[in-house]
Amino acid sequence: MNDIALTINGQKKNLTLAPWTTLLDALREHLDLTGTKKGCDHGQCGACTVICDGQRINSCLTFAVMKDGSEVTTIEGLAKAGGELHPVQQAFIKHDAFQCGYCTPGQICSGVGLIKEGHAKTDDEIRELMSGNICRCGAYPNILAALKEAMSK
């Protein structure tokens, strides 16, 4: 077992974990942060996307022990303390950018990462740079509309 410290959504957490625990399992099973979803568990769907040290990553394809000392933001950490939603969250609601909602936490974290990276300017570039997040309900047009609105703010 390995002792690690992670700062999750601004709070420092000390964990004792088997080294083969993925960051995703550490969040869901050890910290009860079940907003981050396990879709494929193989880096093919993006449902597990979180923001780690400022970058969007697939939490299913990294071991928690490798992120010792890192700052992680999950879907639970995006809204302000008073409950005011993050602009990307607000835009997803306004544009009805989901149906079943299972991919949504990953889509939103990925969108936050995309906006921070600043490489997407056109609709096609947003589509391309959101391609790591699969939506089986096919809400893509509304996800695009939501991200365009959030980017303009």
């Binding site: 993006g46 969007r56 990553i57 697939n58 394809l61 990925s110 990462g113 995309l114 740079l129």
Partner: peptide, 9 residues
Amino acid sequence: GASPQLRNM
């Protein structure tokens, strides 16, 4: 290749 998340990692 891959996706933005994977290219970050």
